[in-house]
């Protein structure tokens, strides 16, 4: 299992904090999800409920079960997974697939890394609670990991994903991905795809 040194920004101190990007999702990561993410998410949802926030605006990933997902994809060569650990805690998780093909006309049929699931810890999500996020850069680093995997597989940095509605603007504006619109075959989620040129631009931004 490969491990890479990364840096996240701690919002409170405005200082970079060292962490690790690890290939794979381990039992320890799933335990963090159960022991820390789920209670934090439950508290955040309770706050949203008390404030009367429309349920359509609640995080759509709230039903994701990472233990089940990790087990379902375990050992599959076509479904590598990644985790980010920092300050002794899992800060982000991602499962990708490598057997999908591009849809964007200019690269149609070519292979890409498809991001099946990507989630950051509840305390790192802006707007989920009244508190400021603890660490920023988790989602960006996971997208960067998908791009690097795509490059190392010979896919040129091409990646794709179906976005949950709350993340549409982030994938379009921060990641600079092409928006191919709503996909009726995938729960009416928007499909986004990144070309090699967009991948270069994303990495050049140094986000």
């Amino acid at each position: 299992m490969s491990e890479f040194q990364i840096y996240l920004l701690e919002v409170a101190s405005d200082a970079p904090i060292e962490g690790s990007l690890i290939e794979g999702i381990t039992e320890a990561n799933v335990n963090d999800w159960e022991d820390a993410w789920m209670p934090a998410l439950a508290r955040a949802l309770q706050q949203l409920k008390e404030k009367g926030v429309d349920r359509r605006l609640w995080p759509q990933s709230r039903h994701w079960d990472w233990r089940r997902k990790a087990e379902a994809f375990k050992g599959l060569l076509a479904a590598p997974s990644f985790s980010i650990v920092c300050q002794g805690m899992t800060q982000g998780l991602m499962i990708v697939e490598t057997l999908e093909s591009c849809r964007l006309l200019q690269q149609k049929g070519k292979p890409l890394v498809y991001i099946q699931y990507l989630e950051t810890a509840p305390w790192n999500r802006p707007g989920l609670t009244t508190e400021r996020p603890r660490l920023t850069g988790v989602g960006t680093l996971l997208v960067r990991a998908a791009i690097e995997l795509s490059r190392s597989e010979g896919f040129g940095g091409r990646i794709g994903l179906h976005s949950l509605p709350q993340a549409n603007a982030w994938y379009a504006n921060v990641c600079g991905m092409s928006d191919l619109g709503i996909d009726p075959t995938k729960e009416n989620l928007r499909y986004f795809e990144m070309t090699p040129e967009q991948a270069d631009a994303f990495i050049a931004k140094g986000v």
């Binding site: 599959l76 060569l77 490598t98 057997l99 070519k110 292979p111 896919f155």
Partner: peptide
């Protein structure tokens, strides 16, 4: 040629697909 991949990359993709189908 079609997938813009090296021979190694195509064969690795084939192995992944075969394993996924088998599972």
């Amino acid at each position: 040629e079609k997938k813009d991949l090296s021979k190694t990359a195509v064969l690795r993709q084939a192995l992944r697909l075969y394993q996924a189908v088998e599972v």
